[in-house]
Nucleic acid binder design. Sequence first.
DNA 1: GCAAAAGTGTTCCTTTTACACCCATGC
DNA 2: GCATGGGTGTAAAAGGAACACTTTTGC
Lengths: 223, 223
Amino acid sequence: MAIDVAADAVVFGYEVRRGLEVLLVQRRIEPFRGEWALPGGFVYEQESLEAAVERELREETGVQVNYMEQLYTFGEPGRDPRKRVISVAYVALVKQSGHRVLADSDAADARWFPVDALPALAFDHAQILTKARERLRAKLSYEPLGLELLGEKFPFSDLQNLYESVLGRSIDRRNFKKKFMALGILDELSEKSSGLGRPATLFSFNKKKYQALKEKGIVLEII
Amino acid sequence: MAIDVAADAVVFGYEVRRGLEVLLVQRRIEPFRGEWALPGGFVYEQESLEAAVERELREETGVQVNYMEQLYTFGEPGRDPRKRVISVAYVALVKQSGHRVLADSDAADARWFPVDALPALAFDHAQILTKARERLRAKLSYEPLGLELLGEKFPFSDLQNLYESVLGRSIDRRNFKKKFMALGILDELSEKSSGLGRPATLFSFNKKKYQALKEKGIVLEII
DNA sequence: GCAAAAGTGTTCCTTTTACACCCATGC
DNA sequence: GCATGGGTGTAAAAGGAACACTTTTGC
């Protein structure tokens, strides 16, 4: 009846040059010492599950998340070779994965990995990650996504690239823009981005409208 | 770190005359002795979460479920007045709620309650139930529902009533039938139902097509 | 001037919605 | 014959999908 309870997080980050990434830590203790795993750890006696995830993320990776939601609870006997451990998994979203330096690490190492070039993972963490990617994909169709992953200002193409990364396929530019703009959650800035090719208009999320829409739910079928 | 882990189930049943119902048990021990609660209990050391739910359901209510999925894990410190307990909640669907006699009860009493006439519930079970109803509602839009709740043969109006019960609003008869039939998962039987008014054609689910559709996912926006 | 990415509308088609009258049976 | 629930189709509107050329910049 008394079972060890862990809380683990699948932390997604996004940067245009690198695409969708996941934050992993290298274990410095057995079991699976030296292998990569999701950040997380045991829940303290008087600590909420969310607080445990946030604490572990801080200790192991130094990141602060912009959004977090519970994903699923993995509880098969045998998923930890030592003893019975159930893990409550969370999905978290972080801005600026590329820029952030992982500070004060409690784990041997912590790094961002592109979702399509992941190392082997400890425990059943590969399974957790698969479910997290499905959740993220599903979220797109009933909630807007982007505020929690993109910077303050971004060209519209960044948003589309993010959607394409999550969905794993390409999207028609005109239709996507038409639909997304119709949500009314993007403010067009007068500023332009520099870079290769024609400069792009920058956008920012209108946080109030974004949150309102998130609570109400949307139906945004993407082509 | 070692925390008590419980598994609880929100069991839904449906019968035309009674509508959508939830199975509750009356607690025979403290805390909340005498109050109504979701069936469930502590998970054994070497038992999967699903097995624990099924065992508790069998012991406390005698029902056998047709479908079960994990809902959410409730883990706030203080949700159990005695000690730290986290509860992994499941949603289960059962056929023939009305006919079934609750046998061999381990709980003081077990009864079906219409979802709109629930008693006060122990612990945070009211919150769990609210989330379960939301999940059921959401499921309608991406998966068909009915096979797990209705009998082998049923008039089409039963299916519509079920959907109306879950959604909490009325649906246009012609449009609903058109959409649902287009899924191709219902077989029309030659048999007719008796009863008041014009006899109704009976239908049954085509289980193969139903399961295929369930796995693939549907988009069934109901008016 | 050319390579690179940004920006922009229209047409067709499918899906959704709204809506009302007749039918078969039991009493 | 009347009350009760079952059964059926169409037209108008909205939303989704497909699709290509021009513009602005850096080099």
